[in-house]
Simulated assay, not measured.
Amino acid sequence: MVGLILVGLGCAPIYLCMIHETPSRFGKASSQSVMGLQMGFAYMGSAFLPPILGFIATKTSVVIFPYFLLCYMVIMLIGSEKLNEFIKK
C-alpha cells in the first residue's frame, strides 16, 4: 500500500506540468481549447480505467495490475513522442 501511495504521489505532478506547458507548446490562442481536451481525457481516464481494470481482474487476477500500468505508460509515452514530432513540424 505504501508503494502504491508513493507511485501516486510521484506521478501527480505530471498532470500539473502538462497543463502548465500547454501555452508554450500550442500557443496562447489555442491553449484553452487544448487544456479542455487534456482535462476531458484525464477525467475520462479516471472514470473508465478503474472499471476496466476491475473487469479484467475479475476474469483473471489482480496480478495483472503492474502490466496494466505498464501498458498505459507505454501508450502515454508513444503519444507524447508523437505529439513532440507533430509540434516540431
Rank of each mutant, 00 (worst) to 15 (best):
V63F: 01
G8H: 03
S30D: 13
A57W: 07
P66T: 06
L70R: 04
Y67N: 08
M1S: 11
P13G: 00
G10K: 07
I64R: 07
G27T: 06
K28A: 12
T22V: 15
R25Q: 10
M73L: 15
V63R: 04
I56P: 01
E21R: 12
V63E: 09
A42H: 13
K88T: 08
M73A: 15
R25L: 14
L37A: 11
E81I: 07
Y72R: 03
G79W: 02
L6S: 12
S33T: 07
K89D: 05
S61T: 15
L49F: 12
P50W: 05
M73R: 02
Y15M: 11
M76E: 10
Y15L: 12
P66F: 02
V34G: 04
L53P: 07
K82M: 10
T60C: 01
I52C: 08
S30M: 04
Y15Q: 09
G10C: 10
F48I: 10
F86Q: 13
M39S: 12
F86H: 12
K59Y: 07
K82Y: 05
G79L: 00
V2M: 08
I87C: 04
V74K: 01
I14C: 09
M73G: 14
G3E: 09
L70G: 15
K28H: 10
G40H: 06
I56M: 14
M76Y: 08
T22I: 15
G27Q: 07
G3M: 08
P23F: 06
V7W: 06
L53K: 06
V7E: 00
K89I: 04
K82N: 05
A47Q: 00
F41E: 01
I5F: 14
G36K: 09
T60K: 02
L37N: 05
P13I: 00
L83N: 11
G54E: 03
K88N: 13
V63N: 08
P23I: 03
Y43R: 09
F65Y: 15
L83Y: 00
F65G: 06
I75C: 13
L6V: 12
M73S: 15
M1D: 09
M39R: 03
C71M: 13
V7N: 02
H20G: 02
M39K: 05
R25G: 00
L69R: 00
F48N: 03
V74F: 10
T22L: 09
G36Q: 06
F86M: 11
Y43N: 13
R25A: 08
V62Y: 11
V2H: 10
G8T: 05
G8N: 13
M76S: 14
M73E: 06
I87L: 15
L53M: 10
F68D: 07
G54H: 02
F55Q: 07
G36M: 01
L69Q: 11
S24H: 11
M35T: 11
S31M: 01
A29E: 14
P50C: 00
G79C: 08
E85K: 14
V2G: 04
M39G: 11
A57R: 06
I87T: 05
G3W: 08
M35R: 10
K82P: 00
A47M: 14
F65V: 15
M1F: 10
I5D: 04
L16I: 08
A47L: 15
F65D: 04
G10R: 06
P66Y: 02
F65H: 02
P50M: 00
A12H: 03
N84D: 13
A12S: 14
F65A: 15
L4P: 02
F55I: 02
N84Q: 14
S46K: 08
A29H: 11
V34N: 05
